[in-house]
Design a protein around this nucleic acid. Structure first.
Lengths: 168, 168
DNA sequence: AATATGTTTCACTAAATACTGAAAGTATAA
DNA sequence: TTATACTTTCAGTATTTAGTGAAACATATT
């Protein structure tokens, strides 16, 4: 396959994957483009390559920076900003997990804990079952969350080591 | 908090969480309702409780059955179908991971492998970098995918044991 | 075979989400 | 201080995704 075609295919693929991972398509495409680019790109170049508007590019680049997946860069003698992606894929994966944990899991845990603590009366079968279920869910979500928390605190070699250790 | 209010809050919370996990809001709400219900419910009852249309209920119930999260049930003397959710939360989590792996990760791995194998010429810096990145990504995605694959093949006690072992 | 009790489908509508592009804002240079 | 080179914002629009409800379909009952 030709270089440009391969690049295009990768960008599209990463875009689709992003779509199902809480990262919107354009955001994932910009990320993909920066990942496979060996040099930093300007907003202009990104707009041009992906055929998107200035507003769209600006918004999604800033979201990527918020997620910690993309960095701003400045070049001597150039007024405009350039952007590069974090190239360490383990770091990228960890960062995504970390953000999603913060944005999605933490609020849910908070509500589950609250529900567990405020649901006092257990008269009917229905209520007993409800309280039990909430307890179970809180327990499982909590255990998973703790494991994920520990995992994202490990560095790359430790992650690989750990995964190998478990799944040898 | 009152029972009905707690239940409502749980359903809403689960719905929001589902939304960011590739499971649409209504689907997650139906799942939540069935999780906390100690008896099997009919389509009618689900429509009624969640204030949704027949078509919507039917579609999402069937999607839940496809995902292996909900089971059909029949009651003696009743013509209509009843539905219950898988109540083992570890099984639920495993099932979701399994489905998403199948639907999202596998196709991406396939494309990555294909890109790695068909990108032959490495003349420019850009091309060299591209090939290297694709290799890295394929490697990390592959390792994660394998670990996940092993994990979902463990049973509940083994999962808990494993997680404890790693993160003691 | 007619009726009753369901379930499923699908064209249409509604809602949520993403994108555009022009205008406003900001910072550096002349 | 004015011009220039950018970045950011945001109201309007387009696209995508989800939901409705009536009609078609299926199956059991009389």
């Amino acid at each position: 396959m030709e270089f440009e075609a391969s690049k295009e295919k990768f960008i599209q693929t990463w875009g689709v994957l992003g779509g199902s991972w809480g990262i919107n398509r354009t955001m994932a495409q910009i990320h993909a483009l920066l990942l496979v680019s060996h040099i930093a790109l300007s907003a202009e170049e990104i707009m041009d390559e992906l055929q998107i508007s200035r507003g769209n590019a600006n918004q999604n680049i800033r979201d990527l920076i918020d997620w910690g997946l993309v960095y701003r860069e400045y070049k001597a003698g150039e007024r405009k900003e350039f952007f590069t992606a974090e190239k360490d894929i383990w770091a990228v994966a960890k960062q995504i997990v970390k953000e999603r944990r913060k944005r999605e899991i933490e609020p849910v845990r908070k509500i589950l804990t609250e529900l567990k603590n405020t649901s006092t009366s257990k008269n009917s079968e229905a209520e007993k079952h409800f309280v039990k279920m909430i307890g179970n869910i809180e327990d499982v979500v909590g255990k998973m969350d703790n494991s994920v928390d520990k995992l994202i605190k490990l560095d790359e070699s430790a992650i690989v080591g750990t995964l190998f250790k478990i799944f040898k």
